[in-house]
Design a binder for these strands. Sequence first.
DNA 1: GAAAGAAAGTGTGCATATTACACTCATGCC
DNA 2: GGCATGAGTGTAATATGCACACTTTCTTTC
Lengths: 229, 229
Amino acid sequence: MPHTYDYPRPALTVDCVIFGLDDEGLKVLLIERGIEPFEGQWAIPGGFVAPGESVDAAAVRELQEETGLKDIYLEQLYTFGEPDRDPREHVVSVAYYALVNLIEHDLEASTDARSAAWFSVDDVPDLAFDHNQIFDMALTRLKGKVRYQPIGFELLPKKFTLTQLQRMYEIILEKPLDKRNFRKKVLSLEILKALNEIEKDVAHRAARLYSFDERAYRRLQRKGVHFAI
Amino acid sequence: MPHTYDYPRPALTVDCVIFGLDDEGLKVLLIERGIEPFEGQWAIPGGFVAPGESVDAAAVRELQEETGLKDIYLEQLYTFGEPDRDPREHVVSVAYYALVNLIEHDLEASTDARSAAWFSVDDVPDLAFDHNQIFDMALTRLKGKVRYQPIGFELLPKKFTLTQLQRMYEIILEKPLDKRNFRKKVLSLEILKALNEIEKDVAHRAARLYSFDERAYRRLQRKGVHFAI
DNA sequence: GAAAGAAAGTGTGCATATTACACTCATGCC
DNA sequence: GGCATGAGTGTAATATGCACACTTTCTTTC
């Protein structure tokens, strides 16, 4: 069904860089393209924006269609608008990124995608289009943002130990942190709720569990308090 | 001349939030719309992206067409993609922002714009489309960014005094800064070149002039040094 | 049930950065 | 010559960042 406009216009897509964390380190979610161009090559999940659908909504929809992930909070990264980034025609892409807890989400490839899989961020293959550039920007943004905004709690289970939290920061920032200083710092922010619960089934002293106190965080954010970890 | 595509697609525009500084404070550049919709209402300069033209290039072109400003470094702000932001149809807009030295640039309204004028950021009228929202985001971003990136030098003449620089920061951040601490800080960054020149025609002791040392800045940036003012 | 292993939990001192604060000096104007 | 205006300059108090090591608790193994 053809559609006609008075003036030509570029096509518009969304792409979603999804980061996850497991024991091995930081991962990124890629799909194997099922259609041309770049059929069979790995790419960031995404697709075309339909008119009448907000761009944010398109990103959420495409992510679910291609990978099965839902209820993900996507944050806008950047818009890539070079005319030659797609060999077919001028396609402008709004890129998003998000962090998810690897364990809580199951993957299932579908529309336009042969398969979906997690790749270590240190081992990302040659991607379709300019997706390596998009991925690089997302990783840079993630590293920059994680230092002064308490994102990253998405990557952990609801209840976590301070050591798990520290390990997450060490993986993302790619550097070791001092245990005592880290605990001092993160507790002084007062955005963690100490639970009356401890770890189970560990072969050593069980650590206290904490949860992220989103209300306390928002309260501080409204006051304009600055964070840094 | 109609253009036909297999699938419908939203239209794509760019919008440019341009900040300037003069004695009175921080200003923003607006145009009075010469065509429907919102004819006669003030708006952020911008326009449609042509296929084959990078989105960045479209922003630069539209800015010049509507206001006469050229050689401006535009930084991407955010992409606004709600389907109802334009009453005609779904129009997605990539917003940019920039800082310019008010004195060095002359305005001249042209295509689609009746006139262009500078407005105090505290006194922005009701704008067309969702442009108030775009403006608010640009101002927030500017305030956030100016504290840890030496942007803002664009707002000043090439040669400036430390007092002028301080005044600029005070205007953007909307708070007074201590003269001695400010000088200590900004000089310790070593991104200013002290010139062998002083102010002229002032009714008091003439201040030393400085210029922004872009090479020194880039050198430090490559080393990953952090700034804060 | 004693010993060994594993990670939890905790405080201090030094170095650096941030903040508050006030006077003298140079110049132009009247 | 005196006055008005802003330029230029240092120090002390406080807060923050950073390096660093041992004891406690619990599980497992023998």
